[in-house]
Amino acid sequence: MRSIPADYRDGLRDVAPVLVSVVPYGLVVGGAAVAAGFSVTQATGFSLLVNAGASQLAVIDLLGRDAPLAVAVVTALVINARLLMYSASLAPYFRDDPVGWRALGSYFLIDPAYALSIVRLEGDADVDPFRYYLGVATPLLPTWVGSTAVGAVVGSTIPDWLPLEFAVPMVFLALVVPTVRDRPGAVAAGVGAAIAVVGAGLPLNLGLLTGGLVGVAAGLVAEQVWERGGGASGGGSTP
């Protein structure tokens, strides 16, 4: 293995601005955990062992309201089921890497790591996919854990006039734009967004998962519709 491969450094460079958005989110989650009754160690350990903010906020909220433990666990897992889709989406790029490295790398898989990687990997065959992914993914976890710990100790101290938490949706907005440049991609995004908004009141945060799944299906349908007449359209449902 080369020393600090260029592809890993490429990933580090691309993730740097995203780390800025992780900090306020971590502060909020750490502050919320302690406010709900978690110890500082528990709040920090939560970020280290789960590494998925939305599911952590849901568990904090549910345990804070004395919901049954099983409900908290199931809710968190339903929220995190989108990681199955990320895993499937990245898996073809990592097939030739050693299984131990893939297991370790998977531990760091979270929304911005996926989004940054897939945007780069779909457009660029020159980069080593797994090394680039590691460069993007590995700095996110220490940033997440560190900012949660600070938030747990000092509380969420971000003043109201500075809406830093808005940086998180802005990161995903910036990352979704390159994926909607073609029409089926735009359909997938539009349908995913609409279902997530309409289904936001569903229990277990199922709106997000449903939006993702139906959005993918809608993208496939749109592709079939627009490619019909073009020679390269393969049958979507093989008999």
Partner: peptide
């Protein structure tokens, strides 16, 4: 279509 669908559903 995973990236556009899920990221848009997040935002």
């Amino acid at each position: 279509y995973v990236a556009p669908a899920v990221l848009a559903a997040l935002v």
